[in-house]
Structures are given as structure tokens and as C-alpha cells.
């Protein structure tokens, strides 16, 4: 699997269920305009392959402002981390090292 093949969230209810259903979760909030978001894509593909027990999903902030609002996304990219059915943290910016650390700590 790779970044292109992960689920794209579009529905708020689906998003809420997803949090409850996953022990380890990473949501990538991005926009198609956003260069730093694109820079993260190859890194995300590596992380998806390195951490098969973590569920990765993505959310286009332009298409789904309601989900972005619920997660209080203020800049892009933002990675929201979920653990045991709850949202526990947020990493703002295109920083692969910080993201991997966040995933390891899940």
C-alpha cells in the first residue's frame, strides 16, 4: 500500500466512527494547493509500509471543512494522531522526523 491508496475521509460520521474503531490512527489533513503537503507524500508511503499496525487516512481540507474544523486544523499539513479510540495529539508542518516520533509513541 502507499499514500495514494489510503482512504480519503469525506464524511463527518465516518470520521467519528473511524476514531472509535482504531487503536492507532494517523489522519493527514492536506490541500491540493499545498506544496509542503506534497513533500510529505513519499515519507507517508514509507511510514505506511513501516507501521502496518497503524491506520493511515487522509482528508482534503478544501472538500471536508467540517472534519478539519472538528480537529481544529489551523495550518497545513497537520497530522492528527489517534490512540485507543481517542484523538491524542497533533503534528503541524511537513516534518517527517516529528511525525515518525509521534507514530512510534502511539
Amino acid at each position: 500500500s502507499s499514500y495514494t491508496s489510503i482512504t480519503k475521509l469525506t464524511n463527518l460520521t465516518e470520521f467519528r466512527n473511524l476514531i472509535k474503531q482504531n487503536d492507532k490512527l494517523v489522519i493527514d489533513f492536506y490541500a491540493t494547493w499545498c506544496g509542503p503537503c506534497k513533500m510529505m507524500q513519499p515519507h507517508l508511503t514509507k511510514l505506511i509500509q513501516a507501521y502496518p499496525d497503524v491506520r493511515f487516512v487522509k482528508c482534503d481540507v478544501d472538500e471536508s471543512p467540517d472534519i478539519a474544523k472538528e480537529c481544529e486544523v489551523t495550518a497545513m499539513p497537520t497530522f492528527v494522531l489517534g490512540k485507543d479510540g481517542q484523538l491524542i495529539g497533533k503534528i503541524i508542518g511537513a516534518n517527517p522526523t516529528a511525525l515518525e516520533k509521534g507514530i512510534k509513541d502511539l
Binding site: A31, P36, V61, P65, A68, T74, A75, M76
Partner: peptide, 19 residues
């Protein structure tokens, strides 16, 4: 910074706090 102040309008324009 990144809580309303942004370095890149094109990157961040779509976030909900600006809608």
C-alpha cells in the same frame, strides 16, 4: 504563529479558521 498567522496563503487558505 500557525494559529491564525500563516507563512503561506496558498498552503493554508482552506483551513476552517479562515472560512
Amino acid at each position: 504563529w500557525q494559529q491564525g498567522i500563516s507563512a503561506c496563503a496558498v498552503c493554508d487558505g482552506a483551513v476552517p479558521i479562515f472560512r
